[in-house]
Simulated assay, not measured.
Amino acid sequence: MNKKALKRIIALVFIIFFIIIVILNVITPSKDFSEQENRMLEQRPKFSVKSLLKGDFTKKYEKYISDQFAFRDFWVELKSNCDKLMGKKESNDVYLGKDDYLLEKFKNPQDKDIEDRVKALNKLDNESKELKKYVIIAPTSVEINSDKLPRYVVEPSQKDVISEFEDGLNKDIEFVDIYNKLKSKNDEYIYYKTDHHWTTDGAYYAYEELSKYMGFTATPKSKFEKMKVTDEFLGSLYSKGNFRNVEADDINLYKYKNRQDENIKVEYTLEDKKSESLYEMKNLEKKDKYTVFQDGNHPLVKITTESDEDRKLIILKDSYANSFVPFLIEHFSEIYMVDLRYYKEDLSKLIEENEIGEMLMLYNANTYFQDMSVKNIKY
């Protein structure tokens, strides 16, 4: 066979392949949600002359084609495998580290970003002196597990950023230093390998440190039953980084040996929803299995316990708090979890009407220095 004939055959095969792909894209129904990527997919945009002339229609249609491409999950996995074979170690701000750890880049804040958050929290403190305040800014896995980073990668220091933030706070705000504790435990499974959260073990060590500042005795591990509820968790960084063929994570729950979930009342106040458990076990069947903890993020969650302690706590939080809160039920009679990203009600009214005496702000460093809601906090 001569070269000319071979070129014709290759061209014909390519044309046939292209036609098949086009037909498949036409006949394949659009999906609303990608389980693999854990996100909503772009839908077919509505056409209008105005959107076409502005360029909006073209941009949205390109995103739609990309999201709804036939056998998208297959192509994503194929690309991931090729990248891995070629030694690629970074994708979409996620590093593929040693031992298949996926590590999310830390977005180093500007000095003004830190200053704005210091001012906002100090202002809140000045307006609510009767409220005792504690702050935990949790370093993320890329900082604590820096030994897992690919060679030649240098990440900005979260420790320096957190220290600069701490130095600016009013003196009566208790800053809870958990950095050294977590760093000393980095040989343990304290962060998920495929997700940006700390594990229940990591949350427990932070709880131990908090107890020293809040004046209660941390419940020892011996009083908990550690239950593995899944070994198939592929988390947010698996979805974001598109690195495939990595080991799935375990999710463990620490359940009090002498306490039944039925003794706890959980109210999703703004959603008219109630539960008798801190855990939504049915969510273990979903892609985002971390939502087993309080069914994920909600504007306001009120937890009523049977604790003998006459203490009420409000937690301003991101999702790091979800696996942390179960450790607190022995120490507070009522716990209010407020996610400022979704809570738009009067914070001072909530605190005053429920006679809440203590506040904990708990965020991971990446979220805290990027999220606008903490900068705009109002009392």
Rank of each mutant, 00 (worst) to 15 (best):
N2F: 08
N2M: 09
A5R: 15
A5L: 13
L6P: 06
I9T: 10
L12G: 11
V13R: 10
F14H: 13
I19Q: 09
V22H: 08
L24V: 12
N25G: 13
V26Y: 12
N38V: 11
L41E: 06
E42N: 14
P45C: 07
P45L: 06
S48C: 06
V49F: 12
L52F: 15
D56H: 15
F57R: 12
T58D: 06
Y61P: 03
Y61E: 07
E62V: 09
S66N: 13
Q68M: 07
Q68N: 07
F69K: 15
D73M: 08
D73I: 04
F74S: 11
E77L: 10
K84Y: 06
L85M: 14
G87Y: 06
K89T: 10
S91C: 10
N92L: 03
L96N: 01
L96H: 01
G97F: 00
G97L: 01
K98H: 09
D100P: 04
Y101H: 13
D111F: 11
I114S: 01
R117S: 03
V118G: 02
K119C: 10
A120Y: 04
K123V: 01
D125H: 13
K132W: 01
Y134S: 01
Y134T: 00
I137M: 02
A138K: 00
V142F: 11
V142I: 15
E143L: 13
N145C: 12
V154M: 10
V154W: 09
D160M: 13
V161L: 04
S163N: 12
E164H: 15
N170P: 00
K171V: 03
D172K: 07
N180A: 11
K183A: 09
D195E: 11
T199W: 07
T200C: 06
T200K: 09
A206V: 00
S211G: 09
S211M: 07
S211I: 04
G215H: 05
P220F: 05
S222H: 05
D231V: 03
E232M: 06
L234A: 15
G235Y: 03
N242G: 12
N258C: 08
R259T: 12
D261C: 12
V266P: 04
Y268M: 05
K273Q: 10
M281H: 14
K282Q: 12
D288L: 05
Y290M: 09
T291Y: 09
T291M: 09
V292P: 03
F293V: 05
P299G: 05
P299T: 04
P299H: 06
T304G: 08
T304L: 07
S307D: 03
D310W: 10
R311Q: 04
L313Y: 00
D318N: 07
S319Q: 07
Y320G: 01
A321F: 02
L328H: 02
S333D: 08
E334W: 08
M337Y: 02
D339P: 02
R341M: 05
Y342M: 13
Y343V: 02
Y343I: 02
S348I: 12
K349A: 10
L350S: 10
E353V: 14
E353A: 15
N354T: 06
N354K: 12
E355S: 13
G357Q: 01
L360R: 02
L360T: 01
L362R: 00
Y363Q: 01
N364I: 02
N366L: 08
F369H: 05
V374D: 04
K375G: 12
K378G: 03
